[in-house]
Simulated scan of single mutants.
Amino acid sequence: MILGLDTFGDVPVDDTGAPVSHAAAIRQVVDEAVLADELGVDAIALGEHHRPEYSISTPETVLAGIATRTSHIKLASGVTVLSSDDPVRVFQRFATVDALSNGRAEVILGRGSFTESFPLFGYDLADYDVLFEEKLDLFVKLLDEKPVTWSGTTRAALEDADVFPKTEGRLTTWVGVGGSPQSVVRTARHGLPLMLAIIGGQPERFAPYIDLYRRAAEQLGTVAHPVGMHSPGFVADTDAEAKELFYPAYKVIRDRIGALRGWPPLRRAEFDAEAEHGSLYIGSPETVARKIAGAAGKLDVGRFDLIYTAGPQNASARMRAVELFGAKVIPMVRDMISEA
């Protein structure tokens, strides 16, 4: 069971309650990753965003910095918005991170639930589906690290093109999916591992997607890899402290995004219900560990990443959450799974 952390580089606040700079927020993530590595956390995934609330627009750049200060932790994006990027350049950048980290780089590719990158880089949202379909097809070909011939409608064709640098082993590549059956089948068709973004509701409702992935892989003659999932949460010394530290900042970012998507403002009762029964993993180390172990067992997944940042949280509290996750939650989860 791989147990990791996930962040979009949310801009935190300092101990006076003032937001830090984007530069300081990026350095905060690096420090959190270094601590996670020291404590034996298996992986850290950095998401790509192009909004003021988040500091990370190029995950692989931050991962390269983390690579030089860590030894064991896997370094992933979560996700790289492939639709608005170039597959060749994405491969080259992650191959570079893989070199710097001695083979620890992973890329999680996605279509992007946020769309700011499309107009920013000159892409038409009307091409949302075809952009990802074609670019994923090319990226999968690049993974073989042999000369590639490819043509499509979304970028220039390639004729026997060789791409450098080469890795010392195949670049680990996942596809992040938020709940589209078509995306699940596409992932299976390419023989890639599936990472499910489960950010609300009971995690068991995603069981049919995992079953679909495995059935599709069998019918298509590809490999069904162990499935991963990531969900938001927070760890503190007690359940009450975790909720009080997490809720105010979570409500800020949830309501800001919700206003753009037509969601009503978050109510505390809704938050408490989601923490109790849904896909918010919030509480003391034992509470969070029990919930992770329970969800992992019900869904039969091989990886769980905790999205440990949400909105303008206190930077010190975030570091404490990373410490508790690595030092206490992970050993508890492993014990619970082994005893199940």
Results as ranks from 00 to 15, higher is better:
Thr16Lys: 13
Val97Asp: 11
Ala105Arg: 07
Ala18Gly: 00
Ala126Gly: 13
Ile73Pro: 11
Lys135Ile: 00
His49Asp: 10
Arg89Gly: 09
Ala289Cys: 12
Val97Gly: 15
Tyr250Ile: 00
Ala340Arg: 15
Gly200Ile: 06
Leu125Trp: 08
Ala289Asp: 09
Ala321Asp: 07
Ser338Thr: 11
Glu323Cys: 01
Leu324Ala: 13
Thr61Pro: 01
Phe206Gly: 02
Tyr281Cys: 06
Gly47Arg: 04
Leu266Glu: 15
Ala161Cys: 12
Gln313Leu: 09
Val11Pro: 04
Glu159Asn: 09
Ala269Ile: 04
Phe8Trp: 09
Gly283Arg: 14
Arg267Ala: 14
Gly47Met: 03
Val288Leu: 14
Phe164Gly: 08
Glu274Arg: 02
Arg334Gly: 12
Leu142Thr: 04
Trp174Pro: 07
Lys74Tyr: 04
Arg267Glu: 14
Leu245Pro: 08
Met336Cys: 03
Ala36Leu: 04
Ile66Val: 10
Arg51Gly: 05
Glu159Arg: 14
Gln202Met: 13
Pro312Ser: 01
Ala296Thr: 03
Ser71Asn: 06
Lys135Gln: 10
Asn314His: 13
Asp255Thr: 07
Leu35Arg: 12
Ala340Val: 00
Leu125Asn: 12
Leu136Gly: 07
Leu75Ser: 08
Arg104Met: 15
Asp42Arg: 03
Ala161Pro: 02
Lys298Ala: 14
His230Gly: 08
Asp127Pro: 01
Gly78Lys: 05
